[in-house]
Amino acid sequence: MKLRNSIILFCVCINVSVSAADMLVVTRQDSDISSVTVTELSQLWLKQIHQLAGVKAEVADLFEKHPLREKYYASVVGKSANKLSAYWSIRVFRGEGFPPPSFQSIEDLIIWIAAKKNRLGYIESRYLNEQLKTVYNVTSGEERAE
């Protein structure tokens, strides 16, 4: 009985800060990055900046047709797929580099994030595990939703 109450209480607490449908920007637990603003996220994914408070950060995407990716770019970067395509075409043409690497699944993305410090990616909150910490809740617009 006591254990069951504890589990219920734990689940309620978790639900207060992060719902199962939230989109989170996460990094490895021991990362030097602890919080980030939505402007910084946009600049990181567009490769306009490469550091956060002096810490070199790497970012990655989900593949182009993934619904979470479209939602992320609409919410954080504020660019439609068409605008984004033009943006990267021009950067590639100028030799300023290619877009961030992209992964077929959230599981693959999490493996990439967990493999090295200071890597960032966006996931659904149900994929959050003990290896990862949240630096930004895209759904609620809160920094450090952990």
Partner: peptide, 9 residues
């Protein structure tokens, strides 16, 4: 895993 960009200015 490859990415291609092409276009015509």
């Amino acid at each position: 895993q490859a990415k291609s960009f092409y276009g015509l200015f």
